[in-house]
Amino acid sequence: MILDLLTVVFVALLASALTCRLIIWFGPLDHPNIPRKQHGSATRTSGGVGIGVGYAIAMMVLLRYSAVWQYEVNPHGARLLWTSAAFSYPLLIIGFVDDALDLPATLKFALYTLISFAAALFIGPISTFPLGGDIVITIPYVVAAAGTALWIFTLINCVNFMDGANGLAMGSVGFGLVALACISLAHGVPSGAAIALCGAGATLGFLVWNFPGGRLFAGDSGALFGGALAAFASLIVIIRAGVSPFVPAIVFFPLLADALITLAWRIWRRRSLFTGHVEHHYQLAIRGGVKREVVAVCYWAATIACGALAFFASGEPDFAAEWLALLGLIVLALTLSAFTHQWARERGLIDP
């Protein structure tokens, strides 16, 4: 089984890297025509198409040749995989069109909302939250469906918001998917490992051209597709492995924390959520003189650490470990956010 999964990782990487090379020749251009775009010259974008091609080819190889799929993945797991793909690729297409035409923000958010709700209903709402011991919170179906849709919507948008430095968002997604794959395998769920490792391999193929040189950007197509893979892999792991819903939030915490704390801060300062800005923590670090590559690697390291924390917490017999770990991360993130904003104010990067 491990050999099969490693093979499809390599297939996804190779197919993604080759497709991304073609996009560097023929893909749409991202011009630095607004302040939040900090690259110096027009750069090819829509590397997400390469990620999507790599993922699709790897899944087809898995379906046709892998013993994992034929003997280990049961019909329910296979249905979840194909359902997740059915909702991931429309997001890739929307992102590709947006890369080329710059769609209105309100239209994009409406489409994201519609796809998120449809995916939540087809994949299945998450309705139980174990808190440790015999304490389990069960929420009504309608609330669970809305909450599951909110998870999908939030993660795809957070990845999109954080895709502003070479390798940062997509590398973090890739490492997070590897963590989910490890958790899936530890719980005997190859379907979760399949979507996660195929996505991780395809993401790595894109990073060959993106980090550190920035010859190709992921674009909205890559950010939306990568966010969708992360969201759907999370749901499959929760549903099939029976892990706590808090586990995926721990895995992708660095991306979620930066994006959500920044949005909350902008709401507090009465600033528009539909206007581009350079106030994310990673953007403040870059504007303050920290190299983009260093910032990206720091987020990768944070994601690896959170993935390891999620892996060990998910193996604890008492589910309290998951929500306590998440609570500790939230306290840490708020503390670091306060420090970062103070540091940025002292350097005139944000208003006092």
Results as ranks from 00 to 15, higher is better:
151 W>P: 00
134 D>L: 10
58 A>D: 08
162 M>V: 05
120 A>F: 12
169 A>Y: 04
214 G>I: 01
47 G>D: 06
254 P>K: 14
259 A>E: 13
333 A>W: 05
226 G>E: 00
307 G>I: 11
3 L>I: 09
56 A>Q: 03
190 P>Y: 02
281 H>R: 14
19 T>K: 03
207 L>T: 02
48 G>Q: 01
327 L>G: 15
86 A>K: 03
22 L>T: 06
25 W>P: 00
283 Q>F: 09
181 A>I: 07
214 G>D: 05
27 G>L: 11
189 V>C: 10
150 L>F: 15
290 V>R: 14
165 A>L: 11
3 L>Y: 06
221 S>F: 01
317 P>E: 12
258 D>C: 14
144 A>P: 15
83 T>W: 12
270 R>K: 13
58 A>G: 05
70 Q>C: 04
66 S>T: 09
250 I>K: 04
209 W>D: 05
26 F>C: 09
280 H>G: 11
146 A>P: 02
292 R>S: 11
80 L>G: 03
233 A>L: 06
78 A>R: 09
34 I>H: 10
62 L>F: 07
258 D>T: 08
174 G>A: 14
156 I>M: 07
326 L>V: 01
333 A>E: 03
333 A>Q: 07
142 V>L: 14
339 F>I: 14
122 F>W: 14
107 L>P: 04
137 I>D: 05
279 E>N: 09
280 H>L: 01
192 G>P: 03
56 A>L: 13
210 N>I: 03
277 H>K: 15
42 A>R: 01
127 S>Q: 15
347 R>V: 00
115 I>Y: 10
344 A>W: 02
50 G>M: 04
85 A>I: 04
209 W>C: 00
81 L>Q: 06
120 A>E: 03
59 M>H: 08
140 P>H: 05
102 D>T: 13
267 I>P: 09
70 Q>P: 01
316 E>R: 12
197 L>E: 02
195 I>S: 05
310 A>V: 04
201 G>P: 01
97 V>P: 03
225 F>S: 00
306 C>Q: 00
293 E>Q: 13
232 F>Y: 15
251 V>C: 04
229 L>R: 12
57 I>Y: 00
123 I>M: 15
275 T>A: 15
185 L>I: 06
128 T>W: 12
195 I>D: 10
303 T>H: 00
215 R>E: 12
43 T>K: 07
263 L>D: 10
327 L>N: 09
253 F>G: 06
36 R>W: 13
92 L>P: 00
70 Q>D: 11
44 R>Y: 10
165 A>S: 09
152 I>H: 13
129 F>G: 01
232 F>N: 02
186 A>E: 02
74 N>D: 15
87 F>T: 06
233 A>D: 11
263 L>K: 07
232 F>D: 08
311 F>E: 01
273 L>R: 13
267 I>N: 12
215 R>C: 01
304 I>K: 06
4 D>V: 05
44 R>N: 14
6 L>N: 11
180 L>H: 02
334 L>S: 11
63 L>Q: 06
334 L>K: 13
17 A>F: 08
240 R>D: 15
53 V>M: 04
218 A>G: 12
215 R>T: 07
107 L>Q: 11
30 D>F: 02
326 L>N: 08
37 K>N: 12
43 T>D: 01
20 C>M: 03
90 P>R: 00
26 F>V: 10
103 L>T: 08
310 A>Q: 07
168 L>S: 05
107 L>N: 08
278 V>I: 14
40 G>C: 04
283 Q>M: 07
7 T>M: 06
54 G>R: 10
31 H>Y: 12
72 E>K: 07
344 A>K: 06
